[in-house]
Amino acid sequence: MQNGDGDTLGKIVGDDSKFSRRFSVYRNNVYHSLTVALSDAYPVVKRLVGDDFFLAMARTYLDGGGFPVHAPLYDFGKDFPDFITGFAPAESLPWLGDVGRIERAWLQAYHGADAESGGMNLEALSSGDAERISGLRLVFHPSLCIEQLSWGAFEVWEARGGEGVAGMKVEARKNFIVAARGMDGDVRVGSFGEGVFDFFERLHNGKGIMAAAGDMDVSVVGEVLGGLVRLGAVIGVEE
């Protein structure tokens, strides 16, 4: 199909030129539908590079082994951000792959598993009782998705690749984003500094707040916890 030799299809009625014209309808449909699927998954990337560039990039990705392997397309294009990072014509936008990673995380959170229940004991976090809080373990929404980034691409994504992006200076700065669908059904994405990644990982793995924080500054711990709650990523706490 990709090569268009049609060998696997057998002969069709009509001459060779008719075959190639008719065959190309199917080939175009395949490429078109998969390119549309990629555009739907990566709208900000597409807006940043423009339709024609995106089309060429998608085509190169597909021909390089990017075809989907499953009928539901949820996982299709999962490694498209990695492909973008290595795509030479896009090297003037070295942070473009990271924008793609944020979009992928958003999409995964959008389709991620539902939480069975939410809001368990969340008020304990704002009880002001330091001793009680330090022993709490956070319960995260199962749709939660984490991506580590090399560039400060969050602001570009937040501006949805719109006009505000033109004046932005995107820095090479390690950070990570958390995407989650809150109990209200809305997906939110938050950006965090690399310095709190290990803390977050420990929380995510079920460690209690104090055990996860170690000797971290209390105000930083509070900031991260507040950020995660505002995202809707934390749906409850266990004492």
């Binding site: 009928a71 539901p72 397309l73 389709h111 991620g112 598993a113 539902d114 749709s143 669908r181």
Partner: peptide, 13 residues
């Protein structure tokens, strides 16, 4: 059918 094979979220709601 294929648009409703995700684990959860808005399509199912």
């Amino acid at each position: 059918a294929e648009n409703y094979m995700g684990a959860g979220g808005a399509p199912h709601v």
